[in-house]
Amino acid sequence: MARQRKKSDLPQKICPVCHRPFTWRKKWADCWDGVKYCSERCRRRKSDANC
């Protein structure tokens, strides 16, 4: 059985829309380098961040 990692040990990024940190998720394992936004809501509001 694999050891559990603490959430604080996972990589983090800052969302450019809401400026909040978000951590790595298992569903992003294959595309973590391409993940920019913390949620669908922020992805849809990305044009607001360019102001």
Rank of each mutant, 00 (worst) to 15 (best):
P11E: 02
I14H: 01
Y37D: 11
F22Y: 11
C51I: 07
V17F: 00
D30M: 12
R3H: 12
E40W: 01
S47G: 11
E40Y: 02
C15P: 01
R44Y: 10
R43H: 13
W24F: 12
R3I: 09
C31F: 11
G34K: 13
K7P: 01
K13Y: 05
A49E: 07
D30K: 15
D33K: 14
G34D: 14
K13T: 04
K6H: 14
K27W: 03
A49R: 05
W28R: 08
F22R: 00
W28D: 07
W32Y: 02
A29H: 04
E40M: 02
D48F: 06
A49F: 03
S47N: 13
C42A: 10
C31L: 08
S47R: 15
D9N: 10
K7Y: 02
A2V: 06
D33Y: 02
M1N: 12
R3A: 09
R20P: 01
A2F: 11
Q4C: 11
Y37L: 03
V17L: 00
F22K: 01
K26G: 11
L10H: 04
C42Q: 02
C15Y: 05
D48Q: 13
T23C: 03
V35Q: 09
F22E: 00
N50R: 15
L10F: 03
C18H: 04
T23N: 11
W28C: 07
H19L: 08
K13P: 09
P21R: 02
L10R: 06
C51T: 08
R25T: 03
S8Y: 05
